[in-house]
């Protein structure tokens, strides 16, 4: 075969093999069709384990109960029993080792999430005890008068 045909041919073959070798090195072994079919299951299988290993931050009220039995039971008997401890106290991951104390949200905004007056027909929101945040002691923290662990009782 003539030289001017062979030389570019060699270049092309070299390029293609270089790409194939690079691909073989770069693409992980577990990459391929792992799920339902090619359209929905073409991925790196190890990524499922990566996601499972993501740290759990919210532990739930039963975890809090192990040390804070008193607060757990007082909340459980109140109208606030439906609210998870961590909704106000923050996620328990690492507690009590690090952080030792959790960052508690004591803002008026936290209480107003449910108790700002929005009398909406067709939504349970209208049934909750509510105040107008601009008129009801606007500069006072709610916890000065109300006990969040037992809202029926004045704190």
């Amino acid at each position: 075969m003539k030289n001017h045909i062979l030389r570019p041919l060699w270049v092309a073959i070299l390029l293609v093999s270089a790409i194939l070798i690079a691909r073989g090195l770069y693409v992980p072994d577990d990459f391929g069709v792992n799920g339902r079919n090619f359209t929905y299951g073409f991925h790196r299988k190890g990524n499922i384990e990566d996601w499972k290993a993501f740290p759990v931050k919210y532990r739930g009220r039963d975890y809090c109960k192990e040390c804070h039995e008193d607060n757990y039971s007082s909340v459980s008997d109140s109208a606030h029993a439906v609210i998870q401890c961590e909704n106000c106290h923050g996620p328990a991951l690492g507690h009590p080792d690090n952080p030792e104390a959790l960052e508690i949200d004591r803002s008026r905004g936290l209480c107003l999430r449910c108790h700002a007056d929005l009398p909406y027909p067709g939504s349970q929101r209208g049934d909750l005890p509510a105040i107008n945040p601009d008129e009801h002691n606007p500069d006072t923290p709610c916890a000065d008068c109300h006990n969040p662990h037992n809202p029926e009782q004045e704190g």
Binding site: F54, V56, K57, Y58, I83, Q84, E86, N87, G90, P91, R113, C114, L118, G122, S123, Q124, R125, L128
Partner: peptide
């Protein structure tokens, strides 16, 4: 949707958890 009161605790928890 009839039970939702728009407290947004779900959004807060999601952002912190994830």
């Amino acid at each position: 949707t009839r039970k939702c009161v728009g407290c947004g605790f779900c959004v807060k928890a999601c952002k912190k958890e994830n």
